[in-house]
């Protein structure tokens, strides 16, 4: 280490220093340009959602001023769409799915890593089958099943489908973490006469980072999914934000204020959640890579 710092501090030729600086500037230019490309469309939509119709077209890049500021789009969205209901539905479905995936996934991961029993390996393989195969390919049969069970147009139908498809990766990620929990701790609890369920609850807080990873990996796809709400729960009363926005936007295509306002409204919760959880996301990805 010391030798490395010494080398770093060693005097460099001017050309080398110059080259490094150019490289650094170029790095930032490319990153700034790409960042602009990534956020420009999003900002443009949010900005213009607060403007009167004429201002949207006359000067799309300007901030809304006292003159051009308008809530007209939001008024349309709230009077003609059911967005509060859509948010509620998305929230119920996403939360329900996340709780089930985390709790049930952790239970499986605990059992598979903690106990040796016949079929352990096979069961592990059975759960990992689903990591790479998308559940959408079973839609034809899934629709029939959901209809037969009377779960069409229900929250619980979607929750069960998303839980089933999220479990394989959750079991995989959580198992990797559970394996690292020292057995001394568990054995000590056993000596004290704790039940196996008690020990599970003891281990759970120790794998919090893995639970965070599972949470973030499932939250975004479930919240954003269009396919299953469209097929399994298209009724107005159970519509999610994603499907609700899709139908609303289709109907109000020419009402630019309403389009921009509904886009902004649908974007805000997920972007806020993302900013809230972005640390977890990075940590989760890092943990996944290190294995």
């Amino acid at each position: 280490m010391t030798t490395l710092t010494a080398r770093k501090l060693a005097p460099r030729r001017f050309g080398q220093f110059f080259g490094r600086t150019i490289q650094r500037i170029a790095t930032h230019i490319i990153l700034i340009l790409y960042t602009a490309l990534a956020v420009f469309p999003v900002i443009l939509v949010i900005l213009n959602s607060f403007k009167a119709r004429q201002a949207i077209f006359r000067n799309p890049y300007a901030l809304p001023t006292a003159e051009t500021f308008s809530f007209i789009g939001y008024e349309t969205v709230f009077s003609r769409g059911n967005f509060p209901l859509y948010f509620f539905n998305s929230l119920v479905i996403t939360m329900g799915t996340l709780v089930l995936i985390m709790v049930l996934g952790a239970m499986v991961a605990f059992a598979l890593t903690e106990y040796k029993f016949r079929g352990n390996t096979i069961l592990g393989l059975y759960f990992s089958l689903g990591i790479m195969i998308p559940i959408r390919l079973g839609t034809v049969s899934l629709l029939r099943l959901i209809v037969d069970l009377g779960l069409i147009n229900t929250h619980i139908g979607l929750i069960l489908v998303y839980t089933a498809s999220g479990l394989p990766l959750a079991v995989f990620v959580l198992s990797n973490f559970m394996r690292q929990v020292p057995s001394d701790l568990k054995d000590a609890a056993r000596v004290d006469g704790a039940s196996e369920y008690r020990i599970f609850l003891l281990v759970l807080p120790l794998v919090r980072p893995a639970l965070g990873t599972v949470l973030i990996f499932n939250m975004i796809p479930v919240w954003n999914d269009l396919w299953f709400p469209l097929i399994l729960a298209p009724a107005e009363s159970v519509k999610t934000v994603t499907l609700g926005a899709q139908t609303f936007l289709g109907q109000f295509l020419n009402d630019w204020n309403a389009v921009l306002a509904s886009l902004t409204l649908s974007m805000i919760p997920i972007v806020l959640l993302y900013i809230l959880f972005s640390r977890q996301l990075i940590r989760g990805l890092t943990a996944g890579a290190i294995k």
């Binding site: 559940i135 079973g138 049969s141 899934l142 099943l145 069960l160 489908v161 498809s165």
Partner: peptide, 15 residues
């Protein structure tokens, strides 16, 4: 988990 995964994922894929 086994039940939910089997009924709502494995079965539909094979069926």
């Amino acid at each position: 988990a086994f039940l939910i995964y089997t009924v709502f994922m494995v079965y539909p894929l094979f069926d």
